[in-house]
Design a protein around this nucleic acid. Structure first.
Lengths: 190, 190, 190, 190
DNA sequence: CCCTAATCGAGACGGTACGTCCAGTCTTGCA
DNA sequence: TGCAAGACTGGACGTACCGTCTCGATTAGGG
């Protein structure tokens, strides 16, 4: 038992799964703005209190429901060639941000973080995107002998497509091949 | 007369100004999440219907209230030196995104656009940031003889600090001097 | 000129008629509860202020619009035979209260008078029904040599069908022939 | 359990009582026209939704709040003497209609029923007054061997003071003693 | 095998914003 | 000055969701 005393009825794992599933479904069906705690509980066939017992915000549920998907979708295999890895990563990133359900959840969370400091704190200092880019960035850095901070390099890589996705551009507008080249050039210059 | 017919009581300019002013104030005082149409109307000393008559969403009011400020804060004088201009612009951009009230409004709107397609449509295909960068980008492009699209170049310039600001970094974490150099390097490489 | 000064544009008789007409129509179409000053003005093709300039309440307009119709519908010719006159009057009264548009207006006004003292004052001490019964009551009184007050006799005549109509009974439930006989009996007894 | 299933939080009896009490108070204080669902909820210290959950209209609340009082105020003890019983009943009726708070509520409801068919349906085919008169009417009918329908006899009894009260007369104008005699005369004649 | 305790679904609770509607007033230009 | 038009402040409407609460029922350990 993880809590202080093992007494009392244990948490229902099926209820937890039903809630996470319901959030995923509802986000796609009605969008983040129309996503409500009430709606989530009803869709999950779960009491309202049960939701509040384990999560504080819809953002928290959404985070838990989508972060694993996000990590999975953004994982790229190493090829040994930094250029190819960067390009592959950028392709996965753009697909994630503009086409994926998990990406829609991520954008919604970033959006909510601009409104609510509590959500901003939830997303924390290292976000999912930065984490996903860590290996690619490290490989690119050693290939170019750049001395930049990881965070700066990450921003250079993620920033441009992130900006384009959040200001409404679709995948077709984003030239990941050129972005990959320019990213490596920029690293080499520093 | 500017509207269809000169008949009927004309729109009250003072009511319009009071609403825009109230939104500005309330955004700072209570934050976007706690900003309500009811609260705006009451703070402005204006009937609720008067707000709805001219604006559909709080995002629409906020847009009208902050876009001029944003344009003003992001305007940079030309120096003839593309490097200095880019650096100056990035400095202004980071200050705008992380410290300015108008920037907080802008971030809130970008956030809301991730939740609500109607707000996404309001922000449209060319956002305030892209517009503000247009001259600097053009100057940098002619200085480097780059052949990139304006939009791509703009994303290259704005993207990195935009990503950092929206994922919670403060101005101190953002190295605009290096970003400026890297931006010009990237342009030259293409 | 009938008012103090002949200066300025005189009252528009067509506007007055349009308002009264609109009230009559709307009462039938939407019922008293959904009858609004705004709706009346729009239906009449008249400015809102014009309505308020000449009438204070919708009850006041309705009163002016329906009182003539009421008087007309309740007028009964004398036959010389008090019994026949009473019965004819009661028949007209029941038709008025349960089937006529003017009667619906009258019931609505009586209803409103129970809610609003100002409307109660408008209907005054002698209502349309009492007035309409005056001649019949007088004839019956002289035929029976009764010494009752006019008001008491009127209540005796009008009260029973009035009660039945206002508590939802239709014309079929009201036996005017028997009521007429009983009214005369009651008069004779006093 | 009295409702369908025993699940969920049971209805709060204190909230129900507070609402009924608030309606009673507010009717006296502000009158029926100024009686609002919002005002009732606030006065009762109850959420607005709680009111709407159990009642559809202010008329429905008022009905529930006043019908017991009405029945109580209109109950008359039997004396064995039909004449005395009728006179006592008419006295109680006139006091109820012209002086009592419950009577004001009843008049307001009758008034509203003239405006709104839903309220008319609520008051139904047998109203409180008719019910209260049932015993007296039955006694009078057997004392006079009258063959009238109960409803007709009830209208004869209640109608005259009902008409006088609803057209603004006060108790002083209503001669219950004479009305009682005339009612019995009318019964005997049929 | 009960006892204690925490969870579960359900749904009512007090509150509050929503967006709409109407009241009654006002400010235009035209007649 | 009256008039149609229509914007103004103000406030009730009925709905929806918030986060909390109180039910009966369920499901585990510990005595």
């Amino acid at each position: 038992m993880v809590d202080g005393s093992g007494r009392g009825r244990p948490r229902s794992e099926s209820a937890r799964a039903a809630v996470l599933h319901a959030v995923d479904d509802l986000l796609v069906e009605v969008g983040y703005a129309a996503l409500t705690m009430k709606g989530i509980a009803e869709r999950a066939g779960v009491g309202r209190q049960t939701v509040y017992r384990w999560w504080s915000h819809k953002a928290e549920i959404l985070y838990e429901a989508s972060v694993l998907d996000a990590q999975h979708e953004l994982a790229v295999r190493h090829s040994g060639d930094a250029g190819k890895d960067v390009e592959a990563y950028l392709g996965a990133l753009v697909t994630f941000l503009t086409r994926s359900h998990a990406g829609a959840a991520y954008r919604a969370l970033i959006g909510e973080a601009q409104h609510d400091p509590e959500v901003a704190a939830l997303l924390g200092s290292r976000d999912v995107l930065s984490d996903s880019a860590a290996e690619v960035v490290e490989a690119a850095r050693s290939a170019t002998a750049a001395t930049l901070s990881t965070e700066h390099a990450t921003a250079l890589l993620i920033g441009p497509p992130f900006f384009q996705a959040l200001t409404g551009r679709t995948a077709e507008h984003i030239d990941t091949k050129t972005l990959a080249e320019q990213f490596l050039h920029a690293l080499r210059a520093s």
